[in-house]
Simulated assay, not measured.
Amino acid sequence: MTPGARVQAAIEVLDLVIAAARANGAPADRLISDWFRTRRFAGSKDRRAVRELTYRAIRACGEVPETGRAAMLRVATDDPELSALFDGSGHAPAIIVAGEPVAEAGIAPHWLVDRFAASGVSEADATTLLDRAPLDIRVNTLKAGPLDMPEGGERSVAVHGWRYPPETRIEQSEAYLQGAIEVQDTGSQLTCEVVAAQPGETVIDLCAGAGGKTLALAAAMENTGTLIAADADRTRLSRLAPRAERAGATGIETVLLNPNKEMQALQRFAGAADAVLVDAPCSGTGTWRRNPEARWRLTEAQLARYAAIQSRLLDVAAELVRPGGRLVFVTCSLLDEEGADQAVGFLRRHADWRAEMPVLPAGTPRGEGLRLSPWHGGTDGFFVARFHRL
């Protein structure tokens, strides 16, 4: 493909990404893969270039662009070399016409920028959400013996964490193939450390999803005790079993939940758990480095629904914890509606609970919990709070 053809290809992919964002369709990475699947003529360098152009345009536009061309023109506005490729030759994009639509630059849609400001996130800080994220891994302590770590990494602030450049192909390493390491953001690892799961305890991962945090808890518990991975999404929960087998994590019990009727499936654990982790569904505003188009998908109505779900799940979790036990609330969000405000609301509703400020090597206090972020510690954005039942 010529350089101009690569730009036109990125414009076509961006049209798909924009349409999917408006319709809550497939994520950008899947759309890019599908686009190339029917275009065998494109080589590896072409694929890499188109992908980079696509994500460059996504990161450059705050509001949802009108078209893929408008998104790419936003990038070309500040890049004369890219602008010159709009020459109409061959498969290149058409010549730029004065006055044609150019997407608006920005961090996010205006309403979200306002919510960030209200949550103590400055514009300068928020811009780091559009950087590329590093590749973080967790050493799996369930795999005994010396570990030959892949080259190019360095220790992170997580107890068992390492960090690599974003382009590292860690899945091809021997350590990964043997299950000795797991891909997991440093912030995610730190939130698991807040749980402080111990061997022999009864621990419930209430929103386990595909089980990334469950596996970290299993390692901390040394495959002893009772570990429950619960979720309402059957498909995501089904991915845990093969991951657990690869990691050597045994004794994990999966529980499929019925939304709004979670206690029906968990009644046998009422008042019995030493610890419950609530990694609640949320807006994902802290993960934009990995999914930058997600900021085009979120609406105020969706944010309100997430906040309501989080409050309800916190109340469910409270029923599961024994006196003297602990509850850890986590969201990958930087908005107070899904963080500090949730912690305050929980304590107001439950007089027999107290907050315990997490102690971590990263993050800054936010209300009754900690905020982890790209600009303080280089992690994804998280809010984490820990509560103790009297």
Rank of each mutant, 00 (worst) to 15 (best):
Q8P: 01
V102I: 15
P292H: 00
A180I: 03
D148N: 15
T77N: 06
A71T: 11
D233P: 02
D233E: 09
G369V: 10
N24W: 12
E52P: 00
P134G: 04
A103N: 06
L390H: 15
F387H: 13
Q302C: 02
R22L: 15
V321M: 03
L327I: 04
A124N: 04
D352S: 14
T224N: 13
V17Y: 09
Y306N: 02
P358M: 08
T224K: 13
A118C: 02
A49L: 12
D46F: 09
R239G: 11
V113G: 01
A60V: 10
G345M: 05
A5T: 07
A210N: 07
A318T: 08
L190H: 02
R295D: 01
A105E: 04
L334M: 10
L266I: 00
I58G: 03
V121K: 08
E52K: 07
V75Y: 03
F346H: 03
D15T: 03
L53W: 12
T287W: 01
Y55V: 07
E154S: 10
R239C: 04
K45F: 14
A229R: 11
G212T: 07
A308M: 05
G339V: 00
A108R: 00
Q267I: 15
V159M: 10
D125Q: 12
H110Q: 11
S156F: 07
F41R: 14
R366N: 08
F116D: 00
F387R: 12
N223L: 15
R69D: 10
Q342W: 00
A158F: 04
A301G: 05
V328G: 07
G381N: 07
I252A: 05
Q189G: 10
E262I: 09
E356I: 13
A144F: 12
V13L: 13
A196H: 07
A218S: 14
D34N: 11
L82G: 01
S173N: 05
A103M: 03
E174G: 07
K45W: 09
L313V: 12
V13S: 08
K45S: 13
S311L: 05
R305E: 11
S44F: 10
W162A: 01
E201C: 03
